[in-house]
Simulated assay, not measured.
Amino acid sequence: MTTAQRPAHAPADHPAIAAPKTGILIANLGTPDNYDYWSMRRYLNEFLSDKRVIDYPAWKWQPLLQGIILTKRPFTSGKNYKLIWNHDKGESPLMTITRAQTEALRARAEAEWGDQVMVEFCMRYGNPSTQEVLDRMVAAGCRRIVFLPLYPQYAGATSATANDQLFRALMTQKWQPSVRTCDPYFDRPDYIQALADSVTRTLDGKSPTKLVASYHGMPRRYLLEGDPYHCQCQKTTRLLCEALGWPADRIDTTFQSVFGTEEWLRPYTVEHVAELARQGHTDIAVISPAFASDCIETLEEINGEIREAFEEAGGKTFTYIPCLNDEPAHIEVMMGVIRDNIAGWVQPARAELAAAGGA
């Protein structure tokens, strides 16, 4: 690794400057540091205080959040996290998977671009924070950064708030790096094919009568206000169905994780799977194309609450299809997005060697 040095013609008291490089920063939603009450409260407070997530006026929302929700919900959320916690590593599955994704991307990026790049990850809520990681990357010499929020479909409450946090962190930098934020990848052919392959691999010859594509929910009002998330989810489902070669009525689009009393995008997954069972669809599979990593919403909500609703309504066989996580095909999708956005900033390592007169 190149260490920081004083510029060649600078005076003796000039500070050392790290050699310039390009940063690749991926951002996931976040995770509590632990599942105890105070860890959960800190995490939920940061998450539910985000105006992109809950856009009610602070005078109306904060008393409810601080006085009621954060008194009770850390206990129930903590119990749910404990059920899925990676006790060997002392962290949530989301952290374990995001780190594995980063390590795989780092290996691929270094093989392609050598020491021209630095690959890191941050969390929108919790640790490692966007601010902490950006500070470290800038100190290491990253003069340009490709920022990839790990959300295939764009939403104000996911992609936009991740970008917001990056921009806030940039405001603290004396010497700001150039930044490119990546577009969502909900309709990339390689992403759709990776999803289709994961369905085929997991089903392994089984033939459920329905595949439910369950996306994280949001208030229906956001769609009416111009958020494209709902439309992008629908397109992902349609393209997945086409890639599988299935009839359109074999895959249903639903939305999970409803919160509060406002109407959210419908149909709600937990209600829909129960209705499917009552209609005679006793063998179904569920996939979560909106999540790049398995997390509390997939490992506990889908495999817990939603599975139970299906079975209690008479369902027999419930197959959960894991997220793409750090599967090689998913890493290649991410690399494809990064290549599109890093173009012109770096050149292949072999070309760099040739330009320097190497072998």
Rank of each mutant, 00 (worst) to 15 (best):
T96N: 04
Q101M: 05
W59P: 00
Q66F: 12
K82C: 00
S49N: 11
Y56N: 02
S49R: 04
W59D: 02
M95C: 08
V117E: 13
T71V: 14
R73E: 13
N80V: 10
G78H: 12
E103N: 09
G78S: 10
V117I: 13
N86L: 09
K51C: 01
A58M: 09
A107D: 13
W85H: 08
G78R: 03
A100L: 02
G126N: 08
G67N: 11
N80R: 15
P74C: 06
E112S: 08
A100M: 06
I54P: 05
R108W: 11
G114D: 07
F47M: 04
M118C: 10
F75C: 04
R108Q: 14
L94V: 08
A109M: 15
N80M: 15
H87R: 14
A104I: 07
S92M: 11
Q62H: 10
I84E: 05
A111I: 06
G90N: 12
K51M: 03
W113L: 08
M118I: 12
T96E: 10
D50F: 03
Y125H: 14
I97A: 02
R52L: 02
Y125L: 07
Q116Y: 09
T96C: 04
D115H: 13
P63R: 03
L70D: 03
N80A: 15
K79E: 15
A111G: 07
P63C: 10
A58T: 10
S49F: 06
L65E: 04
V117D: 04
P74L: 06
Y125F: 12
Q116P: 01
T96G: 00
D50Y: 09
D88M: 12
P63A: 08
E112Q: 09
T76Y: 15
K89N: 14
A111S: 14
K79D: 13
R52K: 10
A109L: 13
K72W: 14
L64C: 00
A107G: 00
H87I: 07
D88S: 08
Y81H: 11
G114T: 00
E103T: 10
R106G: 00
M95Y: 09
T102A: 02
L94Q: 07
H87F: 08
W85K: 08
R108A: 13
A109V: 01
L64W: 03
P93W: 03
I69G: 02
E103I: 00
N80I: 13
T96P: 07
R99S: 06
T102I: 02
D55Q: 05
E91W: 09
E120F: 12
Q116H: 12
A100V: 00
R124I: 00
L105N: 00
D50H: 05
P93Q: 11
D88V: 10
Y125T: 03
L83C: 07
M95L: 10
V119R: 03
Q62V: 13
D88F: 10
T98N: 07
G126I: 08
E120A: 06
I84Y: 07
F121P: 00
I84R: 03
P74A: 06
